[in-house]
Every structure is written in structure tokens, then in C-alpha cells.
Write a protein that binds this DNA or RNA. Sequence first.
DNA 1: GATGAATGAGCGTTCATTCAT
DNA 2: AATGAATGAACGCTCATTCAT
Lengths: 196, 196, 196, 196
Amino acid sequence: MSRVQRKRDERVRRIVAVAAEVFGERGYEATTLEEVAERLDVTKGSLYYYFAGKDELATAAIETLGTDWTERLEALAGSLAEASRPERLRALLRAHIAIAVQEYPAALRLFLVPDSWPAALRDRIRELRRRHDLVFRREITAGVDAGEFSVVSVDATLQAMHATMSQAPLWCSHLAPEARDRAMDDLAEVLSKLSR
Amino acid sequence: MSRVQRKRDERVRRIVAVAAEVFGERGYEATTLEEVAERLDVTKGSLYYYFAGKDELATAAIETLGTDWTERLEALAGSLAEASRPERLRALLRAHIAIAVQEYPAALRLFLVPDSWPAALRDRIRELRRRHDLVFRREITAGVDAGEFSVVSVDATLQAMHATMSQAPLWCSHLAPEARDRAMDDLAEVLSKLSR
Amino acid sequence: MSRVQRKRDERVRRIVAVAAEVFGERGYEATTLEEVAERLDVTKGSLYYYFAGKDELATAAIETLGTDWTERLEALAGSLAEASRPERLRALLRAHIAIAVQEYPAALRLFLVPDSWPAALRDRIRELRRRHDLVFRREITAGVDAGEFSVVSVDATLQAMHATMSQAPLWCSHLAPEARDRAMDDLAEVLSKLSR
Amino acid sequence: MSRVQRKRDERVRRIVAVAAEVFGERGYEATTLEEVAERLDVTKGSLYYYFAGKDELATAAIETLGTDWTERLEALAGSLAEASRPERLRALLRAHIAIAVQEYPAALRLFLVPDSWPAALRDRIRELRRRHDLVFRREITAGVDAGEFSVVSVDATLQAMHATMSQAPLWCSHLAPEARDRAMDDLAEVLSKLSR
DNA sequence: GATGAATGAGCGTTCATTCAT
DNA sequence: AATGAATGAACGCTCATTCAT
């Protein structure tokens, strides 16, 4: 890989990171390329040198955001290998909520992509969700198999967890810092009940 | 009430219904008056004869939908006065999910308040939510007071219930009829656990 | 003239009067038929039963406004037949200013009709101006002929008088009542100097 | 100043000049950005690259015109330091009229502040007027203080002068060249009387 | 590689005008 | 005679997209 290519990759990475930030804050529709460009301190037109358009940029951003998010949860799961199952699940739920609330408050809106998007992109997003989902699914099924967890339905339980976590920002964002922390704790605790 | 007035009301009702549909499908920002008008087979400008603008139309759509929904749940709660607490709660959860999935599959987007919504609308939505929320809150707190329910936090529990119910259509819509019914049952059952 | 015809004339008169009022306050562009209709307590569409459109209504309004204005000045001139020439001129100037400021604050804008108007209407307006102009022209020329007035040029003098009077609302409107009265007095006094 | 910057400035200058022209011909409300763009042979949207909106464009137009005009009068006043007061006043009046008639025949409409103009613009216009006004106010008050001029009211006198000068194009524009020159002379002479 | 400039389609909104009733 | 309803053209404005330099 040439030096030029590395430079380009680095640039692309930075653009995507910033785009993920903006898309995460504002959602797809409310995000303008102008704002993305501004935060990168370049002009709007420059973005087109790297991305074919808003949709592609959004896709890359979602991908990055989703991958980053998933990897952090996976890393956390790894680092908690010693903890008890309930402890680990709660920690994962809590971390997920914290990321949603603090870093990607508009993620829900972002994953509610416009129907007008090409099927390929929608599939890609679904794929990302699946991988994301897997982090929690593994915990639950392993716990159930081990007889430590008991759920009505794994799918329904995961559905409830994800729905609650993705909407957490709507509830928590406008709370004062301490109240917000408590609210996030409560949510994680409440969701933990679903596996008992 | 005059014939003219009735006609007008009927017209307004149709507009609001269609608007709720489109807002639900697309979200606030992505909804264009052009599309609402097209589905009504009138021109954009005609909408302004009945509504002062996009915001008012969205408000009316949300208001109608929210009020109708709440009233049906309140009626159900009333008719179940005799049932046991857990029974009644599960029935309410199941009914809520059914309404969401079958009648307002797009409600999530309607109640998913983007920061870009006019403040007035935001407040109104919050108000509607509160009333809607109250149906379930009453059940939970009464159960807790009676010592039959036990929750970590009433607020967090309600938050989880509402989030899950509003996202149910995303999961259930594309399932086959029987699978869908079972999924809805499971969700209601899962959420019931939150009060135990 | 039939009773029906009289009734119609009466209606037309009322419409035109109200239209003159609104056009006088807002100017041509800012006046909407909606507002005219509202003040008449009828619907927009009804106006079209009497007038072919906004332009015709405006023309009629200007005509009425101009005629009324002129007639009041002529009446005043008649009632001051005994007064000295300078007295009469000043009174006329003062009256003109008062009407402009208090009743038709946007008259200037109204007489600055859009270039897009049909030539016939523009001619009619010019005609109205001429008659209006004549009230003052008569005074000046008579005074000059009698050796009591002395002007550089009758046309230029009248031009200055009319320009000043028509712009008076711009200056006077936002003054407090007493200051406004004084300002109008001053203007009339100042313009009187032009004939000495 | 870079070549790019110079180019941009030049572009802005041209836009403002054309805008002043159109605003002058049509007035604020009747001016459409479409027409401004058309005369510049660009599209409507392009204007927004340079100006935030119609208001800002109008402000810039008025500002440019007003500043240029005032500075020329101030320069003339400076160059006539030796002349007698009456001479200097007449020369200023005559110059003002000439600029109005020959260069800014539509200035009246620009300075004719409709109530509908955004408040910010109104204030700015008032400010420009004040500075413009000052050129003449200085002459008058100095003359009065020196006992060479005598006026009923400085304010009213200035009001009359400005009104007359700004409406001069309405009268003079359609005259033949020689008649027009004479008319302008007459107007200046007539207005001179106001200070005697 | 990046910029400044321009484009054009589309949006929410206004309003004169038309017309069936 | 008058109304309620609808239309459609136009407006100010936004923004993704293109492109010469």
C-alpha cells in the first residue's frame, strides 16, 4: 500500500468519523453536507472527491458507527469474562445505553433509514444490526443454556432490550447529569429483569 | 351542526388520517405536503384551506392518533376492572402492541421527536405521551402499592414498555400472520415480567 | 333606476370604500383580497361578483380615494372664499397633509402603481392627479396673477408641494400626537413660503 | 487581497448594482429574486451564495447606493467651501436632483419604507438617511446661525427638500433633455426659497 | 486534491382567481 | 348573490450535486 493510498485512507477515515458524528447528532434528513464539511474544515465539494453523495457517506458513517459500537461492546464482554452472567449482561446493557445517550443520541433516527434507499444499503444496515444484536443474543442464549437465565422468548426479549436502549436518549437527554446517570442505571437494571 | 360543517369535518378527518399515514411512514422532515396532497388527490395549496401549515397538520395528525389510541386503552382498562392486576396489565400491553402493529405501524416515527420539530409541537407531543403513559402508570403504581407488583423504578419500567411497544411494528410487520400473533403475545409476556 | 340596481350600487360603494381603506393603509402589493373581504364580512370569492380582479378593485379604490380627497379640498377652498390668499393656501396645505397622515398613510405607495398595469388605468390615475393638482394650481396662479404670490415656476412649486405632502406620513406617522400636530403645522408653514 | 477575493468582490458589486436597479424599479415587495437573477444571467439559487436572503440583498443595495450618493454630495460641499452659502446650498440641491434623476431614478421606491420591511432594514435605512440628511442639515443650520438663512423649522424644511428631491425623477424623467434640465434648475431654485 | 461558484429540483407558503352549488 | 372549496403559479429559500480552475 503506497504512501499516497495511506494518506487517502486516513482522510477517508476522518471524513467518515466526522460524518458519523453529525449523522448521529442530527439524523439523516437534518444533516447537511455543508455542516460535515465545515467540521472537517474543507468545502462541500471536496467531499465528492471521496464519496459519491450523501447516501454513500451516510452508509459509510452508519457502518463505522455500527462497527465501532459493536466492537466496544465485544471488547467489554471480553474484559468481563470473569464476571458472573447477570453482572456481565447488566454491564453490557449499561454500556450500550451510555453510548447511545452520550455519543449517538440520534442513532435511532439514523437506523430508521428512508424507504427510498437502495436495497443493498438497507441490507447492509440490517447486517450491521444483526452483528450488533449478536453480542446480546450470545449472552442470553448462553445464560439460558446454563440454566442461569430464563426468558419467555429470546427474540422478544432481545427486541425489548434493543428498543428500550435505542430510545433511551429520548428520555435521558434532557435530564440533569446526575439524574441522567441514575436513569441509565435504572434502565439497565430494569432490562436485566427480562432475563430472570 | 350544519350539513356544510359536517362535510368540512369529514374532509378534515380524511386529511388528518392521510397526513398521519405519511408522517408515520416518512417522519416529519421527509414528509412533503406534496405527497400528502397527492394521496388525497388534491393540490398542495388546498391543504392550506384547512391547516395553517405543515406544523399544524402534523400536530392534528399526532393529536388525533394519540387521543384515539389513549381512549381505547382507557376503555379497555375500564372493562377489565374485574380482572386480576397481572391479567389486566398484560391485556393492556397486548392491546397496545396490536394497535401499534395493525393500525399505526408508523407511529414510532410520529412520536420520535426530532429536535427540529417546532417547540410547540414538541410540547404537545409530550403532553399526549403523558396521558397515554398514565394508563400504564396507573396500573403499575396501583400494583406496587398493593404489593402485587415490584419494580426497580416506575419511570424506567414505563420507558422500557413504551419503547418496546412503539418499536414492535418494526419487528412484527414483516412476519406471517400466525408468527406475528405469537410475536405480539411474546412481547406482551416479556414486558409483563418487568412488573414482577 | 331599479331598486335592485340601487342595492347593487350601494354594495359596490361599500366595497370600494373598504378597499380604499385597506389599499391606503397597506399599499397595493401588501393588500390581500382576503383582508378586504374580511373587513366587509364576506368571502373573497364574493368580491369577484362585483369586480373582475384586484386591479379593477384597486383602480376603483384609487378613484374613490382621489375623488373624495379632492372634493374635500375643494369644499374647504369654497368655505374659505373670504380668507386671504395666504391663509387659504396654508389651510389647504394643512388639510391635505392631515388627510395624508391620518387617513391614507400609504397613499404615496398606492399612487406609485406597478408598471405592469394597463395603460388605461395609468391614464385614469394621472387624470385623477391632475384634478387633485388643480386645487392648488388654481390658488397659486390666481395669487400670482393678483400679484400677491411670487413663484419661480408654478410647475416646480406644485411639484415640491405635492412631493412633500405625499411623503409627510413617512415623517409624521411615528411621532407622538402633539409632536405630530406641530410637525404638520410646520410643514404647511414651510410650504407656504414657496409662494412668497 | 487575493485574486480570488477581488473576483468575488467584483461579483458582489455587480449583484448589488443590479439589485439596486430592480428594487428601485419595483419596490421591495414586487421585486423577485428571479428577476434579479435573470438580469445577472444566473439562477435564483446562486444569489444565496453571496447573500443570505432577500433582505440582506436589499440592505446591501440600499447601503451601497446611499453611501455613494452621500459621499459625492460631501465631496461637492467640500469643493465649494469658498462659495457663498446660498450658492452652495443651491449647488447641493441641484446636484442631488441630478443624481436622483439621472442615476437613481428609482431611489424613491428604495427609500420609501413599507411597514413590511424587516425592522432591521428599516433601521439601517433610517441611519443612512440621517447621514445623507446631515449634508443639508449642516448647510441650513450653519446658515441660520450665521443669520444668512431663516427657516420656520429646520426639520420640516429638510423634510420638504428631501421629499421633493426624491420625487424629482417622477416629474423629470419623461421630459425632453432641455426641458428636463430646466425643470431641475427650477426645482433647485424653488427649494432654495425655503431657506430664505 | 481541493476550491469557489453555480445549478436545479424541490420545499413550505401565499394568494389571485375560478367555479360548482 | 354569495359561499366554500379548490387551483396553480409564483415566491423565498435550501441543499445535494456538478464542474472549471
